[in-house]
Amino acid sequence: MTSSSAAVLQDPPRDVAAAAIAREGHRRDALLPVLHALQDRFGHVPAETIPFIAKALNLSRADVHGVVSFYHEFRTAPPGRHIVRLCLAEACQAMGAPALRAHVEQTLGVGMHETTSDGTVTLEPVYCLGNCACAPSVMIDGETHGRVTAERFDALLAEPRGRS
């Protein structure tokens, strides 16, 4: 158990939302920064915060839900403990991303937007990490890795999985 997951248990999502709104202001344009603060902390935007945010920013719940659902990155359910984002854009395709994808999906036993049954890894697609001269690229827990072969992926994955 890491210290940050202990903190998650202590801080109710509503308090995190309230703190973010106090920092960003009660204006509509605070919405994305507030949603990011929640996702940074909990890995997703907890559903119970939506009515609270709507009231604080003077928006309808539908408004807030519409924003959360528009942006690919915001999740509405908790992800696995580690997040693997595989780049599927053109430059990575040119260097074997489709084959890497097949390997990753087979190794993890999940498809895109799914979480392994042990709750360790969530797999997501990403369209460009800006690492196009070092393709194919994979981001694991916020760190970008380049020239990822199947073997290198297995080695990269062994490390965070061993820790969790």
């Binding site: 509509r28 344009d29 920013l57 924003v67 942006y71």
Partner: peptide
């Protein structure tokens, strides 16, 4: 201001909507 994975927000008017806290 941090985006949230929407490619279309690179279009300038969608980007402005996003900064204002709306769907892009």
């Amino acid at each position: 201001r941090r985006g949230a994975g929407a490619y279309v927000c690179g279009e300038e008017t969608a980007l402005l909507e996003s900064i204002e806290g709306r769907r892009g």
